[in-house]
Design a protein around this nucleic acid. Structure first.
Lengths: 257, 257
DNA sequence: TATAAAATTTCTTATACAGAAATATTATAC
DNA sequence: GTATAATATTTCTGTATAAGAAATTTTATA
């Protein structure tokens, strides 16, 4: 849906063919042999064969057994490890968050879950063009129970992990509206789960309202982002805009993760 | 060293170039930009650029940030998952184990660690050409503390996991030579770790001697294999042969895992 | 042993590729 | 704010390479 590049490049047809073959192996329950592959990708048997042999040479596939079935290779294990170790949600999400900032004219934050002490680590803050800004600092840890991003991420936790968090955490009040009752927090998180976003209204920082969106995909919590504004600037229509545009940003980011 | 295919295939030069680029990104601590890549692979900048754009289109790399640095893509996460879920140590190891069987003229076994109940599951049994064979059945579970493959795998466990195993396990005797003393087992495993192989002499099955080799790589225990023979057939020189040829098979298998 | 099916190899022309060099886009110095 | 340098991207062209048809070898099955 986004206006991204969808036309294949005019270079590297072999790469595109190789990917089609790899994807076919990926999506086939039992490892296929040459015939099964060439029957299911738009290439002749000899072309598939030659590409497979090169992929095998590269360690991208392995051909095993008397039936000569093709398996994805162990090379991908190293690549995947590197992908994870250098994955930068900050860089991935930033363009979409900048757009969200421009659409809402408010400050947009990006955070990740710090599992060591169950807090939100603020990775990036895209300042509102409006003059009066909020006091937040990149790197600062916030509580999960009081912040919009934190509550958004809580809403994605598996039940047992959420229970563990609830058990071990003291809900220390930060403002007069901080939720300090565990049952109430539970309900609040349930609501966030149902909505797909979490609202924090004067709970974490005085006179600030935040809408937090989780970045959750394939069972993994990549982080969360939020739109935050001084409460006086958030009228009814404004909040709806935050939610609408936030949801779009969320979809866009998840699509490229 | 093995007489495997080492000559690049005469087809798919773009694939080979693409792999060189991916490998450079893999081995560079901070994600490189175009210039850094093209300075380090034997291609011109424009060639590297065009391949990168196609790799990006395929989801194999992503270009992020103002500095346009290249990261390995998330596509590899799916590929790696599939690699692991279809990984078949049996098929990978079999040719080398068949060779070992022929070199020793004894039965060769392949097993994996069943972590659910801490036993060895026998995956394959390559029968000795000699007439008198041993009683073992594919699928049969053996104890880690009494079998050669089990002890080989124990020698690769991280210390805390080994301690946990020792604590929870009753060393029930299977023969008159089964090690039933935990301290003695500890020393035996230490010895196996130092040797790189484990010997089981009449401990698991009466009148049988086994030499077990672990298949351990990158912190992962893929399984173990063993050469097993009736004790009366194992003279001094024979045992040395088992160890020598077993080590070679182990190296060969680990090289292709 | 005969037959079928699948895997390799051979061969050839159109085409996709590689690199040089020009251009555009940044970053940085002045 | 302009000049300069560094990097990224595009254009262009001869040549190497890829794609497919078909023959051949290998392997499975009757």
């Amino acid at each position: 849906m986004a206006s991204e590049q969808v036309t294949p490049p005019l270079y590297g047809t072999v790469l595109l063919k190789a990917k089609a073959i790899l994807d076919f192996i990926l999506n086939t329950p039992t490892p296929p042999n040459l015939k099964e592959i060439s029957d299911n990708v738009p290439m002749t048997k000899s072309t598939v064969f030659k590409i497979l042999k090169t992929l095998e040479f590269c360690g991208f596939v392995r051909c095993l057994g008397e039936e000569k079935r093709y398996y994805l290779g162990t090379t991908f294990l190293s690549y995947a490890q590197k992908t994870l170790s250098t994955f930068d949600i900050n860089l991935v999400a930033k363009p979409f968050l900048a757009q969200l900032r421009d659409e809402t004219n408010e400050t947009v934050n990006l955070g990740i879950l710090d599992t060591s002490d169950s807090t939100v680590t603020l990775l990036a803050k895209l300042e509102s063009p409006n003059s009066i800004n909020l006091v937040s600092r990149v790197g600062k840890g916030m509580h999960l129970y009081s912040s919009a991003m934190g509550k958004a991420m809580l809403s994605c936790l598996p039940e047992n992990e959420f229970d563990a968090y609830l058990t071990k955490t003291d809900l220390v009040p930060l403002t007069e509206d901080t939720i300090t009752d565990k049952k109430q927090l539970c309900e609040n998180i349930q609501q966030a789960k149902a909505n797909g976003y979490a609202i924090e209204n004067n709970e974490n920082q005085k006179d600030v309202l935040c809408v937090g969106f989780p970045l959750y995909k394939d069972g993994r919590i990549y982080g969360a982002f939020s739109v935050s504004a001084p409460r006086y600037r958030v009228a009814e229509g404004n909040l709806a805009l935050f939610i609408e545009k936030g949801r779009i940003a969320q979809q866009n980011i998840l699509a490229v993760i």
